[in-house]
Amino acid sequence: MTVKDIGPEPQSFDLESATLENTNYRAVAWSGRYLQLTLMSIPVGEDIGLEAHPETDQFLRLDAGRGRVQMGPTKDQLHVDQEVEDGWAILVPAGTWHNVTNIGDEPLRLYTVYAPVHHASGKVQATASDAQHDEQSGTDEPPSWSVQPAQQPPDGHA
């Protein structure tokens, strides 16, 4: 199943099937004015990477695999350390350092809702390295129709 990001237009699709079929590290499935939906696939033994989004809340839901989520107020104080699996939700308040690691024996399939929009509309990144490159090169910016905070500090990465 391929989902095309049609921007801030009404959209509907089978989210669970799309999440389970996604093999890309990250694929933006829908970008609205105030929030965004991405599909993710984290390979065995890999992780999202320790990060913090100062002005972005996140909701993540696992649809396949097993993971370990770590969260906290600083990159050195990750007081939440929880194993998660299919059906679990992870709620990340803005500014919280967080990481999700695949500790299972299959790809970790999940989707993420960002508010406000965090990535370029329709952006597909096959690997975490591609995502890092796009962020560093400035080719993964939110679309102009999205509503962004007036002063948005840069994301933190460990």
Rank of each mutant, 00 (worst) to 15 (best):
R68P: 09
R66P: 11
H79S: 13
V147R: 05
L110W: 06
A94Q: 15
H79E: 14
W88G: 08
G7Y: 02
Q82T: 15
N99Q: 04
A18V: 07
S146Q: 11
D155E: 10
V113G: 00
Q77V: 15
L62P: 11
R66G: 08
E51H: 11
L20W: 04
L78V: 10
I103S: 01
K4A: 09
V80Y: 09
D76K: 05
E141C: 05
L110T: 02
H53S: 10
P93F: 03
D155C: 04
A150S: 15
K75D: 09
G95I: 03
A52F: 03
E9W: 07
D105W: 13
Q36Y: 06
R109V: 03
A128S: 06
D81V: 14
P54K: 06
Q151L: 14
S137I: 07
D130Y: 00
V113A: 08
A128L: 08
V117K: 14
E51S: 12
G104I: 01
G122D: 07
G95Y: 05
E141W: 09
L60M: 13
P43T: 01
D81T: 13
E55D: 15
D57T: 02
D47I: 00
V28P: 07
P143M: 15
S137H: 13
D105C: 10
E106D: 07
T74V: 07
A18I: 03
Y34I: 12
K4P: 06
L78Y: 05
W145E: 05
V124Y: 03
D5G: 07
D14R: 05
Q152N: 15
H133R: 12
D140R: 10
